[in-house]
Nucleic acid binder design. Sequence first.
DNA 1: ACTAACGGTAAGCTAATACTTACCAAATAG
DNA 2: CTATTTGGTAAGTATTAGCTTACCGTTAGT
Lengths: 109, 109
Amino acid sequence: MGHAISNSEKAFNALGDPTRRAIFEKLRTSPLAVVDIAEGLPVSRPAVSQHLKVLRDAKLISINQQGTKNIYQVDRDGILAMRNYLDKFWDEALGAFKLLAEQEEKNHE
Amino acid sequence: MGHAISNSEKAFNALGDPTRRAIFEKLRTSPLAVVDIAEGLPVSRPAVSQHLKVLRDAKLISINQQGTKNIYQVDRDGILAMRNYLDKFWDEALGAFKLLAEQEEKNHE
DNA sequence: ACTAACGGTAAGCTAATACTTACCAAATAG
DNA sequence: CTATTTGGTAAGTATTAGCTTACCGTTAGT
């Protein structure tokens, strides 16, 4: 078996697709049933189902079954985790940049 | 012409690919020449060049030509912009969640 | 029980995109 | 001047992944 993929990796992949971002945007406002999510989007309802699966697998959204309706909503914990991860991600990138700038400084004095 | 794509959209797309993330990871530590970036990666050097173009177009990295060497490094301004964008992105998602929780609360009292 | 609404999954097609090889230009070293 | 290093671009291939249609199971309403 190939090694497991982390949640942050999955989240990056999930948000890499514009249609999935559009879906996530919709759910950011309020929870919605699948039909309502598909409404207005330029793709079919089954396509939306497939995207929802990917977003759910990345822990960015969660499901809430109500009768025949599957209500999707943003996943608080998953989003907090991703946000946390990204904070470090950017911090490290900018940290390396800062370090570099300081070395530059040193070379010029 | 089709409408322009924003930098944040480009950044999402750019980081959606695992190889590009690996490249960005390498640059997060320190600036590197193209050969050094390709070193260890499971793809050819031209493939790396193509990925670098995408990352550069998304303003996540910048180039610094030195002789025959093209030194790539993380782009401070682009990263700050993306970070700023994402902060709002998550805030809004969590805000909607919070609002929902409060309404739930109200229904149960 | 019948019907309608909701939505997940499978199979297959298609389009996007990641990758390779081949080639070329620019800069540096000898 | 020649040889080497570096790396970008073009063309073509191949794999990925998003999309569609078709189908089926589940729940709710009449």
